[in-house]
């Protein structure tokens, strides 16, 4: 079931890379369901603690967790925001994927519950124990051991579904994959 898939994923998957598409739907407003906002790009991770989302569309944005610092680079604003990774990740879906070394470490942050199979995937639901974050719950979908979907519901009822395609796991990633050097001339802001 989903819990076994998550445990196997945490144990057997050290590194990975995939394309991703993200669809964000706002909660329905006075009866009308909102239009989904689509974005996508490339995702890489090296457990524990390092991951990288490179958004290519609709705009260029890079999020890198290098183990200590979470970097966010917005090309249009030519601005880099840096935050201590520990505080920034807390109970976010990214923490689920990259930082938690094993199931017990994850269960310290999230209540985990296997869900019935759906869309041919095995699912587990993770609800953060720290209630004042933004996340209400995350449903993680696996194809066997392979991560397939992150379905994130926040406390405002906004839903963000991230689908991974072409996932390759335990591939050798270049050493500097998770090294982020702010581009020359970019504003660097500590937050």
């Amino acid at each position: 079931d989903g819990l076994k898939s998550l445990e196997a994923f945490l144990q057997h998957t050290q590194t990975g890379r995939a394309e991703f598409s993200q669809s964000v739907t706002a909660p329905p407003k006075d009866g009308q369901t909102a239009r989904a906002k689509l974005s996508g790009g490339r995702f890489e991770f090296q457990r524990p603690g390092r991951f990288k989302f490179v958004y290519q569309k609709p705009f260029e944005q890079t999020i890198v967790a290098d183990g200590q610092t979470l970097w966010l680079y917005d090309a249009d604003l030519n601005q880099v925001t840096r935050r201590a990774q520990a505080q920034a990740l807390g109970s976010t879906p990214a923490a689920l994927l990259a930082s938690a070394p094993d199931l017990p470490a994850l269960q310290a942050e999230f209540t985990l519950q296997a869900l019935p199979d759906q869309e041919g995937l095995q699912w587990v639901q993770a609800s953060p124990k720290n209630r004042d974050g933004q996340i209400k719950s995350v449903r993680v979908g696996f194809a066997g051991e392979q991560l397939a979907v992150l379905d994130i519901l926040d406390n405002f009822g906004q839903r963000s579904v991230i689908r991974f395609t072409g996932l390759q796991t335990n591939v050798a990633l270049p050493a500097n994959t998770f090294q982020f050097n702010p581009p020359a001339g970019a504003d660097v802001i500590a937050q």
Binding site: Q22, P93, F156, I162
Partner: peptide, 11 residues
């Protein structure tokens, strides 16, 4: 005015 983080959650 709604503020969001890059992964789409409302702040």
């Amino acid at each position: 005015l709604v503020l969001l983080n890059p992964l789409g959650q409302r702040l």
